[in-house]
Design a protein around this nucleic acid. Sequence first.
DNA 1: CGTGTTCTTGATGATCATCAAAGGTGGTGG
DNA 2: CCACCACCTTTGATGATCATCAAGAACACG
Lengths: 247, 247
Amino acid sequence: MNPLDAAGRLVRDALGEGEICGTCGSRVAGLCRPLDAATLDDVLAEAEHVTFAARDHLFQEGDKAGHVFTLVTGTAKLVRLLPDGREQVVGFRFAGDVVGYTPSGTYPFAAQLLTAATVCRLDRRRLDSLMRSYPALERRFLDLCIQELTATQDQLVTVGRRTAEARLAAFLLSLAESGRQRHLPGPVLDMPMTRADIADFLGLTLETVSRSFTAFRRRGWIREPSHGRVELLQRQALTELIDGDAD
Amino acid sequence: MNPLDAAGRLVRDALGEGEICGTCGSRVAGLCRPLDAATLDDVLAEAEHVTFAARDHLFQEGDKAGHVFTLVTGTAKLVRLLPDGREQVVGFRFAGDVVGYTPSGTYPFAAQLLTAATVCRLDRRRLDSLMRSYPALERRFLDLCIQELTATQDQLVTVGRRTAEARLAAFLLSLAESGRQRHLPGPVLDMPMTRADIADFLGLTLETVSRSFTAFRRRGWIREPSHGRVELLQRQALTELIDGDAD
DNA sequence: CGTGTTCTTGATGATCATCAAAGGTGGTGG
DNA sequence: CCACCACCTTTGATGATCATCAAGAACACG
């Protein structure tokens, strides 16, 4: 299970890819797909299409949960804050993923963009009434949520029981899996997150992450052709590190 | 958020407590409450009432997900296995909690009992057809799942960013919160898990957990009147450890 | 071209894992 | 009822992993 994007991916897979959104001209949000054409129009009339700059927040932890977002382009991190100001990244979200659905009144984490992005934003009350009309939509969210729960449990295993290098290996492989799920071809992966973001995701310091990257590079396991990109040259080695370095 | 039992607790809170199950004579499973009397009878006719011994498994990781369980009495741990045989405990479940709902075909983790237990077991297909008839039931599961997701994210923060003692403090406080939610009065908490179970939950070794318990005892923060019980004498100190020791 | 951010690398030390052994507790059967 | 045994817990000694502190290099951006 891929801790990075199981949630969004599930919707995407279940709903099909590559659809063109009648309203915003980009790939249809995972949310809309199970609706018939008339209702789809209805929903999309309500959905706003907004652009954000890198580092903007879609919402802060504790904000009133007024919207559900779908990333059309760009990447975001989901962050929980600690009392002392440090952060734990609880997940990353990519183009096509749904962000910010919660039945409670406030968001339990912040969503901050790593890149400039365009999002489809749907009013929360509108979605709730849609869910009442279309139980299939609710079912979709349940499936999505359980996938995400499973992914978070996987991440708990990684953070709780693996060495620094094994954690990074798990991260890189999940990043590759995430790209594969989005049908992104080619061996080179986009990696818009900084070493600090990765460290906050893996429960490490940025120095340790950097050293692990260096180690992988020196061993010829990965290549970084440019800033923000990686290529996995020895997946087998990364996999063995995860399975074996656990003891 | 309490990582121990948010899932079960939510259902319990939403559905009320202390109901007597017409079929099994014990507190009604959270699942059944939103149903009208006729349907409730219908469901309970299908539910089996089973007893297990301590250390029995309700199911193993990867088993076909044939049933949903509600703990009537007893405590269970939810466990993911690593390739080398070590475990990560992803949660604990107490009387009244629901265990083992997953939309996928197999359980993503094992559920092993810490104590002897009685459970209400409901066939998965039966539940699915019920959910089709009663969207409110599905909604219940969605709320429950998001609560559990939030709890798991909290646990990720604890395991990823806190010291050994702060992790144990967080565990003890969540145990107390869990007892409070179940309306268990009195200052002394049941703690049926071993040091090894706690270690596997917190991403530590059992020795480190034991040393932290000893440290708390010496400082007068906790008391263990007997095996399997704790009393928190200085919650304030435990809370400050969590908030402050994070840096 | 300069400035701020990110990344790398090194030196040092703290936290926690590991290895080891002994004391405690509960359960079982003689 | 006692004794034995398995399991759990505690405590100590040692060392590895990773955090911290520090400084310089590479890079992006204006």
